[in-house]
């Protein structure tokens, strides 16, 4: 799926959170959105997924203007997302969490459930199998039958991604998927993101871990104070003076720049 954000603006009262942001995610492309804290990255994601109504600007999914639609309508278009601060259904089982992703495409009516028709059994098995399949795909090791909140943090991140994938999305928005993960988990996450792309899904990614960003992205969009200050391939963006300034301030030493934007994990 093709996402295009054109001249997006968003203000809360008098505060301008996003000020004329434009970027795109092409078919089967991984685009990272980076920038300092408070730059408006998550706000932009919230606009795209319908959680915020943009003050101005357009959001196009495969050319169709979807700005102002509600989250469930955006999801119905084939968009799935994860949240920065994990939004799992904590009390529900891990499997149930992933089953949530199947809601849109599972064809089961209330009457099937009341009468336990063959269709009910078939769709229930289908949904459970699908949940297992995506949990396998993200490499979940923990207990699938118990409540999601019982899993360690890193595992919960995987469950959230599995839930989004069970939606069978064409566009996936990941909001800091590697936040709070340790070194080896980050490596696995990098691999997971690549494998998701191999499924033919377009990915927009917010991430602070530059190693991960540089490694997986085709393009990087840099935000600062609600504005886009750079957009291009990772190699080009990491040498952009404006980006360096936004991250480090004007008088940064070269060595610091190398350390932070440079070759984190390779």
């Amino acid at each position: 799926m093709n996402l295009e954000v054109a001249d997006l603006r968003l203000s809360f009262g008098g505060l301008l959170a996003i000020d004329g942001l434009s970027f795109g995610v092409g078919e089967n492309e991984i685009v990272s959105v980076i920038g300092p804290n408070g730059a408006g990255k998550t706000s932009a994601f919230n606009c795209v997924t319908g959680f915020y109504r943009p003050t101005a600007g357009r959001i196009l999914l495969d050319g169709q203007d979807v700005s102002g639609r509600r989250p469930e309508q955006i999801a119905a278009m084939g968009v799935a997302r994860t949240f920065q601060n994990l939004r799992l259904f904590g009390e529900l089982s891990v499997l149930d969490n992933v089953r949530a992703g199947t809601h849109l495409w599972s064809r089961q009516r209330a009457i099937d459930a009341l009468l336990h028709t063959p269709r009910f059994r078939r769709t229930e098995n289908e949904v459970t199998d699908e949940a297992h399949r995506w949990l396998d795909f993200v490499g979940l090791r923990g207990d699938r039958a118990g409540p999601a909140r019982a899993l360690p943090y890193g595992e919960q991140r995987r469950v959230e991604i599995a839930r989004a994938l069970a939606r069978r999305p064409s566009l996936l928005l990941l909001d800091e998927p590697a936040a709070g993960l340790n070194h080896s988990e980050k490596a696995e996450m990098t691999d997971l993101i690549r494998r998701i792309r191999e499924l033919g899904i377009s990915i927009a990614l917010i991430e602070h871990d530059m190693g991960l960003v540089m490694e997986v992205s085709e393009r990087v969009v840099v935000l600062n104070f609600g504005r886009e200050i750079a957009d291009g391939p990772p190699e080009q963006v990491r040498r952009d003076p404006q980006v360096i300034e936004a991250y480090l301030g004007r008088d940064a030493e070269d060595s610091e720049i190398a350390e932070i934007i440079g070759d984190g994990h390779g």
Partner: peptide, 21 residues
Amino acid sequence: SRIGRAWRFVREDEDAAAAMG
């Protein structure tokens, strides 16, 4: 069932439920 799960999703977290359609 599917609708029963949807009820619980909404109970647990409306936003996350909406994000799943």
